[in-house]
Design a protein around this nucleic acid. Structure first.
Length: 806
DNA sequence: AGCACGCCGACT
DNA sequence: GTCGGCGTGCTC
């Protein structure tokens, strides 16, 4: 006999990060199950909060009399299945976050409860106070009450037991419904009824006639019936009373793609390489092997077609698939491609959806009405059953790592789910992360190379690197003569160009305009960051600090200054240089409104403009055959960030953006403007030579001891009082140095580059290690030992394999 | 997190 | 003397 439920409650704190046991009242015993959300009383004041049932047991582990009972059930059926509950546990452990946070992360935001506190009258109160407080109502909201009456008065009323508190747990997951009607009498019976309808009851006659024709067991929406057959609501209601028909509620989905029809398309022919890659994936699927594939294909090599056909294969076997795409490339183009191939089987989850739409898509998946899920990071938690394939496209994208707790990496979650379902997972990229590529080297992942562009005869674009150290002498603006000349040529031919202005690392470093020199840290092989608050150059790894140079240490030029330019300024310059060019500017300013991103792209696609000028957001996934020139105005900015991944990011970004050129039958060109023309990350973009880049970068990582040779964990302590934050991080560093083994290295402590955010000061350390048996224990101990301080305003964040070190 | 309990300062 | 400030500890 089920009696007790173990519940994770919605209190994100270390002390409550464990299941609490509750009684299941008699009336719920038949319906409760693991994975449902419930409302429970919690704490001294018995305030009501949301919780998740993680287990149901027949025997209470402790004294039964102190147990409280579940007040309410918030779901009719579980919202999390066994797999996802298990995954949440795993995630909480691996990312050092609370179980409740993990559970909530897996669900649409509408399912998160909000809480309201009400004051209810339980006895007679003095009339004047009653009027002042309740204003004639039976109950009033706590916050509202505080405006009309002091807190002390409320507390004394409560002590006298004249008022009581009521806690409300609200959940916004409203289901949108429509009414449908069903026939309840047979045609024979209706024929009898028809005879007795009065002659002037035209509506009744019409409805009866309709029902006689209407097939049993089929349904028609009430609205449709009224509109199409000119019937009144009253006529239908009386027909319901007479028992001719029944009115039932049916759920409707808010389908954001409802008004678009998608023409079914068919699989494209594959080249030899694509064929071979597909065959390997299919083989793994058929053998139920949880193989991780790394599909490494140059831009335009047709990775998506391989994905599509691999998905077809699992669908044919009656299984389901998840495809992850970075938010930025989840364009209508991408969605359309999937909808065309798989039709209504596809559910799409992305941030452009409203909360309600997102919830509807989620429910469609949960009810097994979608078999393919396409979405950004959080779509990896899609409640699909029987998964046969997972795909992580552009697997190197750092947006797959959530930058708030729980700091999970969608790529890792995808691999975890593939192991749970015994199915393959494909990581795809033209420029894989070094971590993934290294694993393929060690045969942990299986490498599937695509080296040729898929479109017949399409070749990789010709890349020209322009040395801006020379160009800056000739022009005062952001454009080299080479780039302007090529723009002029292309526009004259009626072709289009894409220009990228790199905004990463904007003006946080100093560079010499004459020789491109950037001040490095003497200890860390990483450039120093400018701190205007202290007027110094600082290293974020070791804490090294020096004064701001007024002369270039390398060439002694005095043209050493901040680096950075804005899109708006560039647009003005460009318009002056090419007065006839039609320019579309795409940056955070012009794409803030919902749908404007898409609108701008459509205008460009329709050739209503010649040049698309934008930030990184234009680098990914766009496929415009008429674009034959890509220009990168400043390739260096990301290169000089004080992050060991800066070369990798630069190479990836430049390769991605170069890939936008020459995707149709016309050959493409790329112009890269840089102050570091000899840097390997820029040189190797010329031939899109990922493999050489990989080897070069690996040897550097090996030398300096960074991933993938080492694992990293970042610990950040922050407080409104700078002294307390600094003191805490030094204590943590000391403690970790003693509790971790010899081979682990603790870097820092150092202040974060933006030392103060939201009135808080941030200090960090980074732990590097190859193998650290004590790590999990040490970090958990750290969190437990810091409880007292955390309650006094300290915040400690543990980030496993951080993507950003700045 | 948020609630109760408990121990000290500034008022009627 | 009490009211009410915040620090401490606990939550099935």
């Amino acid at each position: 006999m089920d009696k007790f439920a173990e519940i994770i409650v919605d209190v994100p704190a270390m002390q409550t990060n464990q299941p609490f046991t509750y009684l299941i009242p008699e009336e719920f015993r038949q319906v409760v199950s693991v994975g449902m959300r419930v409302e429970v009383p919690f704490g001294n004041g018995n305030r009501h909060i949301q919780g998740f049932i993680t287990n149901i047991v027949t025997e209470a582990p402790r004294v039964t009399d102190s147990l409280k009972a579940i007040t309410n059930i918030l779901d009719l059926k579980p919202v999390l299945n066994e797999e996802l509950l298990l995954l949440a546990d795993e995630m909480a452990q691996k990312t050092y976050s609370f179980k409740i946070t993990c559970l909530q992360t897996m669900l649409p935001s509408v399912m998160r409860s909000s809480y309201k506190k009400w004051i209810v009258k339980t006895a007679e109160i003095e009339p004047d106070i009653d009027e002042q407080l309740f204003k004639g109502l039976a109950e009033i909201e706590w916050d509202e009450a505080l405006e009309s009456i002091p807190l002390s008065k409320l507390l004394s009323l409560r002590a006298e037991e004249k008022i009581d508190l009521r806690y409300e747990v609200l959940t916004k997951n409203k289901i949108k419904t429509k009414k449908v009607i069903k026939k309840k009498m047979t045609t024979m019976e209706l024929r009898e009824v028809a005879k007795s309808i009065r002659a002037n009851a035209k509506q009744q006659q019409k409805l009866c006639a309709f029902l006689m024709e209407f097939a049993e067991d089929s349904e028609i929406s009430l609205l449709e019936l009224m509109q199409e057959h000119d019937l009144s609501r009253a006529a239908i209601t009386s027909a319901e009373k007479a028992g001719w028909l029944s009115i039932e509620e049916r759920e409707v989905y808010r389908d954001p793609y409802a008004f678009q029809s998608f023409k079914q398309d068919t699989p494209l022919d594959l080249n030899d390489e694509q064929d071979k890659a597909l065959a390997e994936v299919i083989k793994a699927q058929d053998e139920n092997a949880a193989t991780t594939f790394l599909l490494e294909g140059v831009t335009g090599s047709g990775k998506t077609e391989v994905y599509l056909q691999a998905i077809s294969h699992v669908l044919n076997k009656g299984k389901t698939a998840i495809m992850l795409v970075p938010e930025i490339s989840l364009t209508p183009q991408t969605v359309t491609r999937f909808k065309k191939r798989f039709g209504a089987d596809v559910a799409v989850l992305h941030s452009g959806l409203s909360e309600g739409e997102r919830y509807d898509e989620w429910r469609k998946i949960e009810r097994n009405e979608a078999r393919v899920v396409v979405g950004a990071r959080s779509a990896v938690f899609a409640p699909l059953e029987n998964i046969g394939l997972l795909i992580v496209d552009e697997e190197h994208e750092s947006s797959y790592k959530q930058d708030e707790t729980p700091r999970y990496h969608a790529r890792d979650v995808a691999i975890w789910r593939s192991q749970y379902h015994h199915c393959p997972v494909i990581l795809g990229s033209a420029t894989p992360s070094l971590e993934s590529r290294a694993r393929a080297q060690k045969n942990v992942y299986q490498l599937l190379p695509l080296t040729k562009r898929a479109v017949a005869d399409a070749v990789l674009p010709k890349v020209e690197i322009v040395d801006m150290r020379k160009a800056i002498a000739q022009t005062k603006n952001s454009f080299s003569t080479e780039l302007i000349q090529k723009l002029t040529e292309r526009l004259a031919l009626g072709e289009q160009a894409v220009l990228m202005l790199n905004r990463r690392g904007f003006s946080s470093f100093i560079m010499c305009r004459d020789c491109g020199f950037v001040l490095p840290c003497p200890n860390c092989d990483i450039s120093l960051t400018l701190h205007m608050d202290t007027k110094t150059m600082k290293c974020h790894y070791c804490g090294h600090e020096e004064r701001i140079p007024y002369q270039c240490p390398s060439c002694h030029s005095d043209k050493i200054r901040y680096y950075g330019t804005g899109t708006q300024k560039v647009e003005t310059e460009l318009q002056e240089l090419l007065p006839d060019a039609r320019i579309i500017r795409m940056d955070v300013d012009t794409t803030r409104k919902k749908g404007s991103h898409q609108a701008l792209l459509r205008r460009f696609e329709n050739h209503e403009a010649d040049i698309l000028l934008g930030t990184q957001m234009i680098a990914k996934g766009l496929d415009f055959p008429n674009v034959t020139l890509v220009g990168v105005l400043n390739a260096d900015t990301a290169l000089n960030l004080p992050d060991f991944r800066s070369s990798e990011r630069t190479f990836q970004l430049l390769t991605q953006v170069s890939g936008r050129s020459g995707r149709g039958d016309k050959p493409g060109e790329v112009v890269i403007q840089t102050f570091n023309p000899d840097h390997y990350a820029i040189q190797l973009v010329q031939d899109q030579d990922y493999e050489t880049f990989y080897r070069k970068e690996m040897s550097l990582r090996h030398l300096s001891g960074y991933p993938p040779y080492y694992f990293t964990v970042q610990v950040v302590a922050s407080h409104e009082d700078e002294y307390l934050a600094a003191k805490k991080i030094y204590q943590i560093a000391e403690k970790l140095k003693t509790s971790l083994s010899e081979q682990a290295v603790v870097l820092g402590p150092t202040p974060k580059s933006i030392a103060r955010v939201n009135k808080r000061y941030f200090y960090q350390i980074v732990i590097k290690y190859r193998q650290e048996p004590n790590l999990e224990q040490a970090l958990n101990d750290l969190m437990v030992a810091s409880q007292a301080e955390i309650q006094k305003g300290m915040r400690i964040v543990i980030d496993v394999e951080p993507q950003n070190f700045i």
